[in-house]
Design a protein around this nucleic acid. Structure first.
Length: 230
DNA sequence: AGCCAGGCTACCG
DNA sequence: CGGTAGCATGGC
């Protein structure tokens, strides 16, 4: 009998309701998700796209990020090398749809310097956090989806769901929620590769679910998790 | 018209 | 340390 807990039960319910998500990479992958295929990213170009997307998606919808990534693709600039050679105003224009284009352009250029020094090595979380524009969530996003590291990505939706289900209190911080999720999931899943897959899917499922039930106040109206997780 | 989006930095007390 | 204004555009 497999061990379980509330956090894992939530995952199973979401997975059952929405199926596998298969997020990144996207543009370099024919602009489609890849459910059931977890062999990504396949090369440094795809790793870079995940990093780029992680920065661009800050406080913005993914559809806006897709526009930006497509603009870059049209300019044949979906690589760190190509972006570095762009005029910064050209870069700002390309990513305009994602919002905050002035600061995000600077963040991206700064990240590229960092990324190229890495030379295909997986960065540590602290190294990522030292880059201007990369905070906790973006760092975990890059590590989880770009480097397949077992780092759970927490976001505003995660907090709303956990809060609504009474699993955290209002003053819970990023690390509190991250540790709660990781600890619970690692109790149920011992294999690290499987942990990575579940972490990736779980976050994507929370976003998918929350777009419908946790985007406008009052949060959680109609959310089926409320009746099933007690 | 107003609120929200797959946040982070700078600066305040 | 915790709290918050500012950042910018697009969609509903």
């Amino acid at each position: 009998m497999k061990k379980t807990n509330k956090i894992y039960e939530i995952y199973e319910l979401l997975h059952e309701a929405y199926g596998p998500q298969g997020w990144w990479p996207f543009i370099n992958n024919d602009e489609s998700y890849h459910p059931h295929d977890y062999l990504y990213p396949k090369n440094q170009l795809e790793v870079f796209e995940v990093c780029l997307g992680s920065i661009l998606t800050q406080n913005t919808t993914f559809t806006s990020v897709v526009k930006s990534l497509n603009n870059l693709k049209e300019k044949n600039a979906l690589s760190s090398k190509a972006i570095k050679e762009m005029n910064i105003d050209e870069l700002k224009l390309a990513i305009k749809a994602s919002g905050y284009h002035n600061q995000k352009a600077k963040y991206i250029l700064g990240f590229i310097d960092f990324f190229e020094v890495l030379d295909a090595r997986t960065p540590t979380r602290d190294e990522l956090l030292s880059v201007l524009g990369i905070g906790e969530e973006t760092a975990d996003s890059i590590l989880l989806y770009g480097y397949n590291s077992p780092e759970f990505k927490v976001d505003a939706y995660t907090k709303r769901v956990l809060l609504t289900l009474g699993l955290i209190d209002e003053k819970a911080k990023y690390q509190d929620m991250k540790q709660l999720m990781q600890k619970a999931l690692k109790e149920c899943i011992k294999d690290e590769k499987e942990q990575v897959i579940v972490f990736q899917e779980y976050h994507a499922l929370i976003v998918n679910h929350s777009k419908e039930f946790y985007s406008k106040k009052p949060y959680g109206v109609g959310c089926f998790l409320k009746e099933k997780i007690l």
